[in-house]
Computed example of a mutant assay.
Amino acid sequence: MNFANILRQHTAALRALLVLTVILGIGYPVMIWLFAQLPGLKDKADGSLVDLGGKPLGSSLIGQLYTDAGGNPLPQYFQGRPSAAGDGYDPMATSAGNLGPESVVDSPDKPSLLTLVCTRSAEVGARDGVSGARPFCTDTGVGAVLSVIGPRDARGTVTAPTRVISVNQLCPAAPFVATYEGVAVECAEPGADYAIGQIVPIHGDTTDPAVPADAVTASGSGLDPHISPEYAVLQVNRVAAARGVSPERVRALVGEHTDGRTLGFLGEPRVNVLQLNLALDGLERVCLM
């Protein structure tokens, strides 16, 4: 290949680079930006910011924490669902907890998904005056899981237990059940490995938890700004008492800020927590006037 051919090829490549840079690196972004400034789209392109008196208070698309300096939930505000994004609703650390349905046994440095759900359910129940009990949870708010040790059949099922340990209840805690198939249940010794046993979650008596699922599980992004109407209604009495207003007025606000399914059939009804809390603050200002 002579020098002239090499020069032509490199010149053609350079022209293609310059043309594509202008089209895709400049023209396309500018076109998208101009399109985003059209009425009806500008608010979403700017981040769907919610402000009061010209001061941005958050985005209707991203949840936020309503806690005091110690991380304790403020009783006068509706609480959102848990978040696994950084320290909570951090857009720069959006993520899920990466724990699946088989995460039922606590590790020394990290609780299982089941124990997280049980703990959150107990906390929400205590905060909002309902039972925090739910299936596969102990009364103390950890996963109700046993390691059953003994001979097994061909399918791996223990046929005659010789030892049973409540793996998520460290000694000296009292196991949530006294016996299992006639064998006394032991508490778990710190640092001991009970993987040799068959892991058996125990359902318990609770079949219809009072605490909704979205109150105890994080969303996939960790940024979900919505809660279910059921979780919002659960919080009405607490918020009303903290603000000194009637539950009926707070319940009416929840209804006003409940959105139906998208297009009538996509997703579930939902309540935007930021907008609801701002409406509550507005109601309180009106009452003080």
Rank of each mutant, 00 (worst) to 15 (best):
A4T: 11
L7R: 13
T11D: 04
L14C: 10
L14R: 11
A16C: 03
L17V: 15
T21E: 12
I26E: 03
L34V: 13
P39C: 13
K42I: 01
D43N: 09
D43Y: 08
A45V: 10
G54W: 00
G54N: 07
K55N: 08
K55R: 15
G58L: 05
S60H: 05
L65S: 09
Q76K: 15
S83M: 07
A84G: 05
D87T: 15
Y89N: 00
D90A: 03
P91R: 04
T94W: 14
A96K: 08
G97L: 10
G97C: 08
G97V: 10
L99C: 11
G100M: 08
G100Q: 08
P101A: 14
E102G: 12
V104D: 11
P111Q: 02
L114Y: 00
L114V: 02
T115Y: 07
C118N: 00
T119R: 04
R120Q: 13
S121M: 04
A122T: 15
V124K: 00
G132N: 03
A133Q: 11
A133P: 14
R134G: 01
P135D: 01
F136R: 08
C137D: 07
C137E: 08
D139S: 12
T140N: 06
G143M: 01
V145E: 05
L146E: 12
S147C: 13
V148I: 11
V148W: 10
V148S: 11
I149Q: 14
G150P: 01
R152I: 03
T157W: 00
T159I: 15
T159K: 14
A160S: 11
P161N: 12
T162S: 13
T162Y: 03
R163V: 14
I165A: 10
S166L: 06
C171N: 04
P172G: 10
P172F: 10
A173S: 10
A174L: 09
A174G: 02
A178Q: 06
G182V: 12
V185E: 06
A188H: 12
E189L: 11
A192R: 04
A192E: 09
G197M: 01
P209V: 11
A210Q: 13
D214W: 00
S221C: 11
L223G: 09
L223S: 13
I227A: 13
S228A: 01
S228W: 05
V236G: 01
R238T: 12
G244P: 09
P247W: 06
P247M: 07
P247Y: 13
E248G: 01
L253Y: 01
L253I: 08
V254Q: 01
G255S: 09
E256S: 04
D259G: 05
G260E: 04
L263Q: 14
F265S: 02
F265N: 02
L266P: 05
E268I: 12
P269M: 04
G282K: 09
V286Y: 08
C287L: 15
M289W: 13
